[in-house]
Amino acid sequence: MTGLGQIAQHADDLDRATAFYRDVLGLRHIATFDPPGLVFFDLGGVRLLIEKAAPAALLYLASDDVRADVERLRERGVPIVEEPHVIFTDDGTFGRPGAEIWLAAFEDSEGNTVGFIT
């Protein structure tokens, strides 16, 4: 095994989901194949597949500034389901000892919960 290659997320409306992930979140759109109804985005070298047949997934998107990213989404009317907060002060397990790990969550256009994490 060499790492994560692709993840999938459910969408009822592919056009609406495409607009959300491309225009609101700013992800790079790779391709759309319709039919059969597949939309691909780039998540830093990992493909994000949006499709009707996929189950809902809980995605955590990397953020340099969780609070700023949440405010940007809030200004665009995106529902925030978990306000930014510190979940862990790193002891060196994930990176620099003493660094605060922040988390927040929002609802995408399809009702899926998606998180931001530092």
Score class of each variant (00 low, 15 high):
48 L>Q: 05
13 D>Q: 11
88 F>W: 14
15 D>A: 12
7 I>R: 12
113 T>V: 14
36 P>N: 11
72 R>G: 02
91 D>N: 12
18 T>N: 09
73 L>W: 01
96 R>A: 14
24 V>D: 05
46 V>M: 13
95 G>V: 06
77 G>S: 06
22 R>K: 15
79 P>F: 05
53 A>L: 10
17 A>D: 07
7 I>W: 08
17 A>Q: 01
59 L>T: 03
44 G>C: 04
18 T>M: 13
29 H>R: 14
65 D>W: 07
98 G>L: 02
105 A>N: 12
69 D>W: 06
44 G>W: 03
92 G>K: 04
32 T>A: 12
39 V>R: 09
89 T>N: 14
107 E>R: 15
73 L>P: 05
70 V>E: 00
60 Y>K: 13
31 A>V: 11
96 R>Y: 01
60 Y>M: 14
22 R>C: 11
21 Y>L: 03
24 V>T: 15
99 A>E: 15
114 V>Q: 06
93 T>P: 00
87 I>G: 11
118 T>C: 07
24 V>F: 04
107 E>P: 00
82 E>W: 01
67 R>K: 12
67 R>L: 04
104 A>Y: 01
4 L>P: 10
51 E>A: 15
111 G>F: 05
33 F>V: 11
40 F>K: 00
100 E>Q: 15
79 P>E: 02
106 F>S: 10
32 T>M: 07
22 R>M: 12
97 P>Y: 04
27 L>Y: 04
23 D>M: 04
52 K>G: 14
39 V>P: 08
80 I>D: 03
109 S>G: 10
19 A>T: 11
90 D>K: 10
113 T>A: 14
6 Q>A: 13
50 I>L: 13
47 R>A: 14
32 T>V: 11
96 R>F: 05
44 G>L: 06
34 D>T: 13
113 T>D: 05
14 L>M: 10
118 T>S: 15
50 I>R: 02
107 E>S: 14
110 E>F: 02
8 A>V: 06
114 V>R: 09
88 F>Y: 15
117 I>M: 08
79 P>M: 05
14 L>F: 05
59 L>S: 09
88 F>D: 13
81 V>H: 01
42 D>N: 06
11 A>E: 00
87 I>F: 08
34 D>A: 14
86 V>Y: 04
24 V>R: 08
19 A>V: 01
43 L>S: 03
64 D>M: 00
113 T>E: 15
77 G>Q: 04
63 S>E: 06
103 L>N: 12
1 M>G: 15
63 S>D: 11
